[in-house]
C-alpha cells in the first residue's frame, strides 16, 4: 500500500499524459488519441471482469461449494450452475442451441420487470400526475404557484404532454389517392408536439453542454494544478 502511495506522483503524471493524449483530438484524429482510447477500453474491460468475478460469481457459485462442500449442491445451486454452463455454450456456434434457455430466462425476467415497472412506475403515476395538475386547488409544491399563474403553467404542461404523445402516434388513414395521411388536427397537434420535443431537447442540450463544460473545467484545472505544482514547487 505504501508503495502504491509513493507512486501517486507517477500516477498523476500518467493521468496528465493520458489527458493530453485525449485532448489532442481537438487538433485532429491521431495516434496518441487512439492509443489512449484503446488503453481505456482494455483496462475498463479487465476491471469489469475482475469485479464481476469477485463480487458476483465467486460469492454465488464458488463460495457455497467451497464452504459447504458437495452437500451444498441443492436445487438452488445446481440450477444456477447448469444455467451458467448452458450459457457458456453460446460461445460456439455449434453448441449455441442449449444456451438459449438461460438467455430466455434473462429475457423473460427483464421483459417482465420492464413492463411491470413501466406500468406501476411511470404510466400510472404520470397519468395521475397529469390529471392532478388540473385541480385548481392544487399548489405547486416547489414554487408555491397558485391561481392563474399555476393554471397557465398547467395548461402549458398539459399541452406539451398531450402534443408530444400525439406526435408519437403514427396511425394514419389512407385517403382516396392511397397515401397515408393523418387528420389535419392531428397533424397540427403533432407539429406542436414536435416543437415541445425540440424545446425539451434544447434544455437537455444546454444541460449537457453545462455538464461537459464542468468536466472540461475540471480537467483543465487538473492540468493546471499539475503544471503549477511542477513550476510552483
Amino acid at each position: 500500500m505504501s508503495n502504491i502511495a509513493s507512486l501517486q506522483p507517477l500516477g498523476t503524471l500518467l493521468a496528465a499524459l493520458l489527458t493530453m493524449m485525449v485532448l489532442s483530438y481537438l487538433v485532429g484524429d491521431n495516434v496518441l488519441f487512439r492509443l489512449a482510447v484503446h488503453i481505456f477500453v482494455g483496462m475498463a474491460a479487465g476491471y469489469a471482469g475482475s469485479i464481476a468475478v469477485h463480487n458476483v460469481l465467486i460469492p454465488r457459485l464458488i463460495t457455497p461449494v467451497v464452504s459447504g462442500g458437495l452437500g451444498a449442491f441443492n436445487s438452488l445451486l445446481i440450477v444456477p450452475w447448469l444455467l451458467v454452463l448452458m450459457l457458456s455454450l453460446k460461445a460456439w456456434r455449434s453448441t449455441a442451441g442449449p444456451g438459449s434457455l438461460p438467455v430466455a430466462l434473462m429475457v423473460g425476467v427483464g421483459a417482465a420487470l420492464v413492463v411491470g415497472g413501466a406500468v406501476t412506475g411511470t404510466l400510472v403515476p404520470q397519468t395521475i400526475a397529469a390529471m392532478d395538475s388540473l385541480d385548481p386547488r392544487a399548489v405547486t409544491p416547489l414554487t408555491g404557484e397558485t391561481g392563474l399563474e399555476r393554471m397557465l403553467n398547467v395548461v402549458v404542461l398539459l399541452a406539451g404532454t398531450i402534443s408530444t404523445l400525439v406526435y408519437f402516434q403514427f396511425t394514419a388513414r389512407r385517403d382516396a389517392t392511397g397515401q397515408a395521411t393523418r387528420s389535419r388536427l392531428a397533424t397540427w397537434v403533432a407539429y406542436v408536439g414536435r416543437l415541445f420535443i425540440a424545446l425539451t431537447f434544447g434544455v437537455m442540450y444546454a444541460g449537457g453542454l453545462a455538464a461537459a463544460m464542468a468536466v472540461l473545467a475540471e480537467r483543465v484545472q487538473f492540468l493546471l494544478s499539475l503544471v503549477f505544482s511542477f513550476f510552483g514547487g
Binding site: 404520470q126 400526475a129 392532478d132 395538475s133 405547486t140 409544491p141 416547489l142 425539451t200 437537455m204 444541460g207
Partner: peptide
C-alpha cells in the same frame, strides 16, 4: 428535464 416530471407532481 427527464427526471423533473417525477418530481413536480402532487404525489
Amino acid at each position: 428535464p427527464m427526471v423533473r416530471p417525477y418530481y413536480e407532481t402532487l404525489n
